[in-house]
Amino acid sequence: MINDKAKAAHRLKCDDIRELLIEYFLRELGQNRSDLVREHLRKCEDCRATAAELSDTVDLLRSTMHDPEEPQRLSDESRRRILHAISHPLLDWMSRHHTLVSTVVVIITLLVAGLLLRDIRIRRDLPEAIEVEVLKEAVITDEYYEE
C-alpha cells in the first residue's frame, strides 16, 4: 500500500504537486492526496523548496494576524448610529438621501411660493378690474337711457 502511494507520488509531475501545495498546508486536501504530496516532497528537492517558501508566506501572514491597530469592537458612535437607523428608518433614509430630500424640498417651496405670489397678484388686481367693469356698465346704462 505504502509502495503504491510512493509510486503514484513519483508519477505526479512537479507542476501538479505545486498546484496542491497551498491546499496541503491549509489542510484542505483529503488523506490520500496529502499522502501523495508528502511522499513527493520527500523525494523532490525543488518542490520541497517551493513548499518551504509557501509555508514561510503562510507563517508570515499569520504572524501579523493580531494587529493592535485594528479595532476589536464598533465604536459607541457606530452603535448609536445603528440603533438610530433601525429605530427610525424614515429619518435614516432621509439623512442618507439628503441631496434628494433637499432638492425636493426646494422644488416644493418654489412651487408654493409661486402659487402664493400669483394669488396675491390676483387679489391685488381684482378690485381695480371690478371697478373698471362697474364703470363700463354704468356708462353703457347711461347711454342706453339717454337714447
Partner: peptide
C-alpha cells in the same frame, strides 16, 4: 471598515 460593518449590521436587522 467601521462604516462598512455598521452598514452590514443595519442591513442584517432590516
Amino acid at each position: 471598515a467601521e462604516d462598512v460593518v455598521q452598514e452590514a449590521f443595519i442591513k442584517l436587522y432590516r
